[in-house]
Write a protein that binds this DNA or RNA. Structure first.
Lengths: 161, 161
DNA sequence: GTGAGTGCAAAACGTTTGCATGAGC
DNA sequence: GCTCATGCAAACGTTTTGCACTCAC
C-alpha cells in the first residue's frame, strides 16, 4: 500500500512539467500517476479519494493546484457532464472532442468534427467573429450496453437479495 | 424601483407553469420576468443580484428552485461557459445549440448542426450507442467587435485618467 | 540557501435543505 | 382549509486562500 507505480505516460508528463520550469515534486508525481489510472474522466473529488488511500500525505489543495497546473499546460482538459458536474480527462491531441460513456465514464477522443462549413455559415449569418467551439457526444459504450443486459437479468434473479 | 413590468413572453411562461399544475406565485413571476430581461445567458448569482435590488423580498432559495423548475420544464437551459461556470439561457426550440458572445454574453440559437453523419461514423467506429450531443460555439458579436476598437482608442486617449 | 511548492485549516463560494410561516387554489 | 410554495438560516460539497514549513533546484 502506498506504492505509486510509475508509468511511462506519467514520466512523459513529469518531463513536460520540468521542461516548463516547474519543480518535480513527489506530490505532483502522485497526482499525475493516479490521474492516469482513471480510464475515463474523473472529478477532483474522485481523484482525492484515491489519493487519500494510496498516498494520504498529499493534501487536498495540492490536488486542486496540480489539476489546475496540468489543465493550464493542456495536459488535462476540463469537461462538463450532462448533470452539470465537471470532470477532467487526460488530453492527447491538440484540437479534439470527446465521446463519453454516460455509464462508466470511458472517454474516447476524436479529432475531425466536420464543423468548418457550419462555423463559416454561422459567422456569415450573424457577423460573429468565431473564436472556438465545444462539442461533446454522450452515449453508452459497447461494454456497458452488454453489462446492462446482464444487469437486468441479474436483478430479476436476485431481487431483494 | 420594485415595479416588475410584465412582458407577454413572461405571461406565456406563467401560463405554462399554471398549465403544468404549479401555482402562479408572485415570486415565480418576478424570477421569470427578470430572467427574460437578460439578453444572453445569466448565472443564478447574476439573477439573484438583480432580484435583490428590484424585488428584495424574494429569497435566494426561491431563485434556485424556480430556475430548476423552469429548466425541468425546458423553458430554460443550463449551459456551460469555457471557464467552467454554468449559466442559464431562455429556451425557444426543441433541439438547438448556442452561439455565445464571450464579451457581452449575447446568445443566439441555431438548430441545424449537420452532425448526423459524424455521429453515425462515430457510432460505427466505436460501437457506442449514441444518446445525445452538445455543441456550443464561442466568439464575439458584431457590437462587441466594434466596441473593442473604440475601447482601445479610448484607453490610449484617457490613459491613467 | 532560496523560493517554489506543500499541508493544514479556515474561508469562500455556489447550491441545497429543514422548517415554520404564508399565499394560491 | 388544505397544500404547495416561500423566506430564512443553517448545512452542504467543492474549491480557494493564508500561512508557516519544507524540499527541489
Amino acid at each position: 500500500m502506498g506504492t505509486i507505480v510509475k508509468t511511462s505516460a506519467g514520466e512523459e508528463i513529469m518531463q513536460k512539467i520540468s521542461d516548463s520550469g516547474y519543480k518535480l515534486t513527489e506530490s505532483r508525481r502522485v497526482v499525475v500517476e493516479l490521474a492516469l489510472k482513471h480510464e475515463g474522466h474523473f472529478s477532483a473529488a474522485d481523484l482525492y479519494e484515491t489519493i487519500k488511500s494510496e498516498a494520504p500525505s498529499v493534501g487536498r489543495a495540492t490536488v486542486f493546484r496540480t489539476l489546475d497546473l496540468l489543465t493550464s499546460m493542456q495536459l488535462l482538459e476540463k469537461i462538463h457532464l450532462g448533470d452539470g458536474c465537471h470532470s477532467y480527462v487526460v488530453c492527447q491531441s491538440r484540437h479534439h472532442h470527446h465521446l463519453i460513456c454516460n455509464t462508466c465514464g470511458l472517454t474516447i477522443d476524436f479529432e475531425n468534427c466536420h464543423l468548418n462549413e457550419l462555423l463559416q455559415d454561422l459567422s456569415r449569418l450573424t457577423n460573429f467573429s468565431i473564436k472556438g467551439h465545444w462539442l461533446e457526444v454522450f452515449g453508452q459504450c459497447e461494454r456497458c450496453q452488454n453489462k446492462e443486459q446482464f444487469a437486468v437479468v441479474g436483478s430479476i434473479m436476485k431481487k431483494d437479495s
